[in-house]
Design a protein around this nucleic acid. Structure first.
Lengths: 122, 122
DNA sequence: CAGTATCCTTGCGGATACTG
DNA sequence: CAGTATCCGCAAGGATACTG
């Protein structure tokens, strides 16, 4: 969609849009990946996405809901049960994000090595 | 590489690794995308990645260099010319990141619409 | 041109306590 | 269980001025 020529002149546009992809939030990507992999309940997400606090998870889910990437299902029970689900739109984002996750898995070692070399060397 | 079963038990590992993918830095993804698309000089990146300050661009490039994703070429000239280039490793990250960028391009409208609906509705 | 050097503000997000 | 409500520290990163 964006060719070389367009790219040359429409920088402002996509810089805004990439931020729309929510790269700005530290946790968003991981929450979406977790949801795509089948985690649904609040507590489930809380443990899957290791290190996230309840407060931040709530905020993250709310903003994903606001952006139409996630739907929230509240079951009127006691104790309460709430399930989150990726929307159609959310699922389209899941694939590319998962690719990033996979990249991290596969190249973590290399990054660590490079980092150590950089720190030792100079 | 990570199947459903592994995923269930190895959460801690990949949460660390995803952060290694540098999702934490607000600008990293955009800098890598810009580099992959051919931007090379400091000033060029500065204008392509709209809104980034010189300070932050420098820091971002340094950390990418440290992680072995980018190499820095200094040309001993006056005025100085410095070119940045994705390494082999950096190029492997470029593809998935570009996919995210493309997603943002394609779905920005939907997100904006959902957001407006959410804000108006409730 | 390609950075450094400082200063300073903002807000992310951690910790903790409480509730329907 | 699934959140809210507060309080608050700290570091990301913006603004500005200067340099090899």
């Amino acid at each position: 969609m964006v060719n070389k020529a367009e790219w040359t002149t429409s920088t402002a546009i996509w810089s805004t849009r990439v931020s729309l992809a929510r790269m700005d939030n530290k946790w968003t990507a991981m929450v979406v990946i977790a949801l795509g992999r089948g985690a649904r309940r609040f507590g489930e997400l809380r443990t899957k996405v290791e290190g996230i606090s309840a407060k931040v998870l709530t905020e993250t889910l709310r903003s994903l809901e606001r952006d139409g990437l996630v739907v929230r299902h509240v079951h009127a029970e006691m104790p309460p049960r709430v399930e989150y689900e990726l929307t159609e739109l959310g699922r389209t984002l899941h694939a590319p994000l998962q690719a990033i996750g996979r990249w991290a898995e596969e190249h973590a070692e290399e990054v660590l090595t490079a980092r150590a070399a950089y720190d030792t060397g100079r």
